[in-house]
């Protein structure tokens, strides 16, 4: 996420991905783990984030962290006078969103003899067909992703992360479609959350 102060970058990453460990925050924000951790500790000192131990532990925003992010990220949007362009690009995103969810579902489930069953991935030709559609979808998504990052350049990282997930899936790591924490579906959902958060649209 270029063009954001590092503290806001880390804060906003947490706003979009929810509770997470240092490694995932760093990977999402495109920072080294050491840099990310240093920022997280500073943010914790000012009461904007909090750390929990335990099996599902990690870093999360406090209520004041959420408020601070909303204020600063709105400031960024207005300073760049990007609201009209981002709103228009978000409309394009919303057209694509149900199709992406259809595709993820088609990867996980398939209709056999009129019955929807779990896709056991034993039919290579079906899986190839779904993967082809992901690739075709991505070609069209790139147009919208470019509109989004033209409005606010920090969104450019999503295009990179989505392309990376698709590339891995195409090379056989199919968990990067729907299952991995960095899967196409997961990154897409984070982008959705980021657009809502940036435009101030409640879920």
């Amino acid at each position: 996420m270029t063009h954001l102060a590092t503290d806001l970058l880390v804060l906003h990453t947490l706003r979009c991905i929810g509770f997470a460990g240092t490694a995932r925050i760093a990977a999402t924000a495109g920072l080294s783990e050491a840099d990310a951790e240093s920022e997280l500790i500073d943010l914790a000192v000012t009461g904007l984030v909090t750390h929990q131990a335990g099996e599902f532990g990690g870093w999360g925003l406090t209520a004041s962290g959420r408020a601070a992010d909303a204020e600063r990220i709105t400031g960024e949007l207005e300073a760049a006078a990007a609201r009209p362009a981002l709103t228009a690009a978000f409309d394009g995103f919303l057209v694509l969103n149900p199709e992406l969810l259809d595709l993820c579902t088609a990867w996980q489930l398939r209709s056999v003899d009129g019955v929807v069953v779990a896709n056991d991935h034993s039919d290579q030709s079906y899986d190839d067909r779904v993967l082809d559609r992901f690739t075709d979808f991505h070609r069209r998504a790139v147009v919208v992703l470019d509109e989004i990052s033209a409005a606010l350049p920090r969104f450019g990282r999503y295009r990179f992360r989505l392309a990376d997930a698709l590339q891995r899936a195409t090379c056989g790591a199919s968990e990067y479609l729907t299952d991995d924490i960095a899967s196409y579906h997961a990154v897409w959902a984070e982008l959705h959350e980021d657009l809502l958060a940036t435009l101030g649209i409640p879920r």
Binding site: G18, F19, E55, L101, D102, T105, L109, A189, E193
Partner: peptide
């Protein structure tokens, strides 16, 4: 659900949502 719920989803044994269909998040 949204990405914010990932750790809740990870911690839970099962999931119920009011909205969304079979292709929801």
């Amino acid at each position: 659900t949204s990405p914010h719920d990932l750790r809740g989803l990870a911690a839970a044994a099962g999931i119920v949502t009011a909205r969304g269909g079979p292709a929801s998040h």
